[in-house]
Structures are given as structure tokens and as C-alpha cells.
Write a protein that binds this DNA or RNA. Sequence first.
DNA 1: CGTAACTTTGATTAGTATCAAAAATGGTGG
DNA 2: CCACCATTTTTGATACTAATCAAAGTTACG
Lengths: 254, 254
Amino acid sequence: MRGDGSRLEPMIRRLDRLAPLRQADRETLLALPHHIRACPASQYLVRDGDEPDQCCLLLSGFAYRHKVTGEGARQIISIHMASEFVDLQNIFLDLSDHSVQALTEAEIAFVPRRALRDVALSSPAIGRALWIETLIDASIFREWVVNVGRRDSRSRVAHLLCEFSLRLEAAGLARDHCYELPMTQEQLADTVGLTPVHVNRVLRQLGEEGLIERDRRSIRIVDWSRMRNAGDFNERYLHHQLAGLAGASPGQAP
Amino acid sequence: MRGDGSRLEPMIRRLDRLAPLRQADRETLLALPHHIRACPASQYLVRDGDEPDQCCLLLSGFAYRHKVTGEGARQIISIHMASEFVDLQNIFLDLSDHSVQALTEAEIAFVPRRALRDVALSSPAIGRALWIETLIDASIFREWVVNVGRRDSRSRVAHLLCEFSLRLEAAGLARDHCYELPMTQEQLADTVGLTPVHVNRVLRQLGEEGLIERDRRSIRIVDWSRMRNAGDFNERYLHHQLAGLAGASPGQAP
DNA sequence: CGTAACTTTGATTAGTATCAAAAATGGTGG
DNA sequence: CCACCATTTTTGATACTAATCAAAGTTACG
């Protein structure tokens, strides 16, 4: 825990963009107790029903949250990338209502709930930034309800690929609508509420239409404008303008 | 705005159960500037894309939030009942990412964003309670992603009817799993991602199976245990235990 | 009453799931 | 470096859920 305080920097920069922090706030955040652990892909970070006493901050790699129905079907609820908290709601909710797993090998900083809660309630700026983080999370959930509830298979998949592209670029993890998709087609299917077989066909179709190019897990959105259209994608729900990121990825069309 | 301060009482009680408030906090909340208006059914309270300067607190009646896809399909994202804020995320998000409409005739207290924000940031207890309110909202969104993404039509509808029953009872608006469903079948369909025709058939089927009884819009869950099962319903995601409401509606089985 | 909104029923179709199996891919140890 | 194995991706054939289209009943309301 000592000497690695700087590993928290990306998270602090992220929060600072959501709500400007003063130097004292930054120092408070840097002083947060935590321990860092490397987790192999697919390791559980939180289990549905747990009473967590830590919040998980992703330092590197990817993680996802999911729920499993009584029938055994899995629905992935969100995907997270470096510098994001994966279960910030546990700051105040005592029982976890879903599970969190590492998607790739990932480094996690575990921060005691209590410490994070005290910080959130004592500094208005930090509280505000963390709250906004949970509000943007919720906005993405809302968009996903629409995605699985009212879009057809092609739009659903295209929408997810668009969201990924923008979020990765905003986090500085990708450029030019080109990125490594860290998930199998089965995980993709559980994200958009389809079967893996169907996801495979939709991906092929998007390729044949010239909207994307694929090689293994790497995705390149060839025609952002048409892809945006195919996915009925409007980035407003990501609220990137809050972080001064609006237009960070202009693409080839309005 | 003067002399009707007591109309805010139910909301204050609600927040107090989420995070205990001191007398000073209660008075701060009672002193919140606001104006009250009666809205006819289907009136817009917020429009997608707005820059709202008020938050809407439901005093009576029901409201819902929704998004419309590029194809014109509507997805209802949440349903709200008396004493709930319908757009609390607007406290910090500057651009509304969805619309809010009155579902029935409703009375709304409009509270200036700025005032609510100041209160939330200056009193830790109030901030905490409001934050928790948004976190529970988000938990319900997550469950809805699962509902539309991974449950079949019968489970989806049953799940929604179960959720309604518990939330209404927790709010003191219903008893014995018996309530008026304030929505048309078309609205139900847009909530669970089905067509109105199919919702109609599923409702009939649930009736034939003896799980529910219907008369007009009134619903009675005859067999809570089987209904819970049909809807793959587990109330944990409602986080009612936070409000000391766990087991408020024991039903007929574990 | 008369009219619009909503609910219900029927017939048909479309989209996606399911089942099955073959081809790639990525590791692993020999 | 290669053979082997597990995992993932891809393709094909068929089944089924829920959508669509159409229209008749109901109910609420002015």
C-alpha cells in the first residue's frame, strides 16, 4: 500500500474531470487505504449476495458485472475498463445484487468501503464526483434496457460496438475506432441478450456490409457514420461532455 | 409554496428511512423552495435533451420515464409512485438523456436543481439519502436489463407484476398483493419489450393458470409463491431492507 | 349515445433460438 | 517444433417464440 499511491492517479484524474477537485481533495484520495492485487481472467471480484467491505477500482484490464436468472441464463450488465470503479454502489448498499468478474487479467485496487464512504461524505467535491460516476453508470443501464428491449439484433450489436469505441477512446485506450474487444462472442451474446450463434452471424453481416473489419478480437469500425446509424447510437447518454470529452472522437460525420 | 410544506413530508420520511436524518436536516428539506402543479395524464415533465433546472418529486399519481429509438419504438425505463423523485439524476447531469411523462393524473413538486444540489452537498445525511435513492434506481435498471434481456415473455410480465406489488406495498399504496395497475397493456408492452398483443395473451395465460385475477386494471396476485416463481422474482434488488421494509410483504412462502 | 381508446381474438410471418457439427485458434507439454 | 486438447468461431438445418396484420369486442368518456 505504500509507495504505489500513484496507481490511483488515473482514477483521480477521472474524478477531477467529473467534478473539479482541490489539491486537498487529491491528497485525501491519494491517502485512501487500499491494497492492490492482480486477478486472472474470470476471477470473481464480488458475488451476488455478498456483503462487501471493499470497493473495487480497476487499475488495468477489464471487468464485467452480471446476473444469472433462475433458468441459468446469464445477463451481463456492464463492462468496465481501467480507472473505473466496478461496484461503487456498494459504498452504500449493504448487499450486492449482482456479481462482478474479471473479464481479462486485471489489476484491482481494493478500497475499504468505510474509508471511501467517509471520504465521499466529508468532501463535497469528492462526493459529487463519485456520485456522478454512479449516475453515469445508471444512464448506461438505461440505454442498455432500451438496447435489449427495443432494438433488433443488428442494432444491438452495432450499438455495443459503438459504445465500446467511444468509451475506450475517452479513456485513452483506443484511437480511430479501432480496438481489441476483450470478450468472446458468448460474452457478447450475454451482453446484448442474444445467442452466441446469432451474434456470430450479425458480426459477419456487419463485416459484409463494410461497417466493420475484424481480425480475431480486434475491431475496426470502418464507417463510423453508417455504424452509428446501424446501432441507432447517440452518445449523449455517456455524458462525456461532463468530463470535457465531447467531440473527442469526431468520426467522419455529424 | 407557503403553507404546503407538509406535502414534502412523505418524501422526507422516505429519505429518513434510507439514511437517518436529524431534525436540522428535516427542516432543511422542508424549507426547500418548490412549486406544486397538477399534471394531467401523459403530460411531459422532462423531455429527452432538455437542460432541466428543476427536479420533479411525485406527490400523488404515477409517472414513467422512457426513451424512443430511431425506429420509433418506445422503451419505458422506470415507473414511479408517490414520494419518489422521478429525475433525481438531473441534480448533477446537465442534459436529460430521456423523457419523463405523467402516467396518471399526478401532482408534482418542482424543486430547483440548484437548491437540491446545495442541500445534498452540504448535509451528509441528506446527501447520503438522496444518493441511495439514485443507487436503488440503478439497481432496478440492472434488474430490468436482465428482465428484457434474458427472461421469456411470461416471466417478464410476471416479474413486473411482482415488482409493482412489493413497491406499492412498501409505499403503503397497496396490500395483500392487490392493486390497480396504472398502465395500459401497450405501456406494459413498452416496459417489458413485447408487443401489446402478446402482453394481452400472457396476462390471460397467467389468469388461466390461477396466478393472478384481473378486473379492468386491477390486479390481484392470487398465489404469490407461484407468481414469484413464474417471474423468477427475488426482491433483493429493491434493497428494501435498507429502509427497514424487508419482509413487509411476507407472502405465502419463503 | 356516440366515439375514441383499449382489450381481445384469430391467422400468418419474421426473427431468433436451438441443435448439431465442422473449422479455427490458442495454449501446453513432449 | 509439433501433436494434442480445450475453447472459440463458424456454418447449416430446423423449431419456436413473439411480431405483425387484421378485425371484432369492450370500456370509458364527453
